[in-house]
Design a protein around this nucleic acid. Structure first.
Lengths: 148, 148
DNA sequence: CTTTATGTAACTTTATTAGTTACAATTAAG
DNA sequence: CTTAATTGTAACTAATAAAGTTACATAAAG
């Protein structure tokens, strides 16, 4: 029972674009090297991020940009872009309607699952890409400090 | 992003046992008929519910029972029994450690995902099997009332 | 123009879940 | 006791979704 790594990879890509903007060429190949996947997978994800209005890209040019300030991109925005608001829990929609339980469990679970999912989404909405980037920068600084 | 129906089916089975206790034989076959799956799938789930101490069963006899009052069984108890506390979100653990992003994104996401998951689990912990059963009973009553 | 890159379709591989078959172990009823 | 019904579980198959690959048309940029 889990959300695919696409969600994590999407956040990774957005953070990468923000951090390495102007420092190295932001080719799908360079990004894929950081995510450790193929450039096609990266482009596929970026295509969705573009559709959702989170980044801008130019066909043929290696120059993706965040379409908004990282402080104004929440993890829920990314979730919606990539997972199309899919559910965290799945209701089994093949139950016996003749049975008291089978005939009423679906609506019942939908009602309660929605509460749980709303709670999770609200948290996601409160975490920004800027939070993620800050955390990455700080962790990196701690590492280099230990070494030096 | 594929989420198994096992969690929903588990709640279904528990509600079924509670509602049909003493009314019809609680064979895995009868339960499977309500869930619209095979008796083996039902027995497999019940085996886990038993291990988690949510039900009691007797080998060879069709007599499963809830081990606790439905008011004292939360959806989180069921979640733990069936999903073994698996994560709702998956961190991609194959990222480039040489890269600032790839080398720090995993811990960063684990930290923030944990907050989101805790929020969801807290909600699950506040919903009891009794809530589910009540909801099923009320919905059924509404149906029969409309018809009559 | 030639090289490099994106965007996307179509396909293959891999992993997970659901469902099936089979059977030993157990219960319960005559 | 013996027989029929049932659980518990292993091993297998089928279905499905995600991840990765191949291929190529299209666009950008020197």
């Amino acid at each position: 029972m889990k959300i695919s790594t696409r969600f994590s990879d999407s956040i990774h890509i957005l953070a990468f674009i923000s951090i390495y903007q102007g420092k190295i060429p932001l080719t799908s190949d360079n990004i894929a090297n950081s995510v450790e996947t193929s450039p096609v997978v990266v482009r596929r994800i970026m295509s969705q991020l573009k559709k959702a209005g989170l980044i801008t890209t130019v066909h043929g040019a290696a120059d993706p940009k965040l379409a908004k300030d990282p402080a104004n991109i929440s993890l829920y925005d990314v979730f919606l872009a990539i997972e199309h608001d899919q559910h965290l829990f799945t209701v089994d929609d093949k139950t016996n309607p003749q049975c008291i339980v089978g005939g009423n469990i679906q609506d019942t679970l939908r009602y309660y699952y929605k509460q749980v999912e709303t709670s999770a989404k609200a948290k996601l909405a409160r975490i920004s890409l800027a939070d993620i980037i800050d955390s990455i920068i700080v962790k990196q600084a701690q590492k280099t400090n230990k070494k030096g």
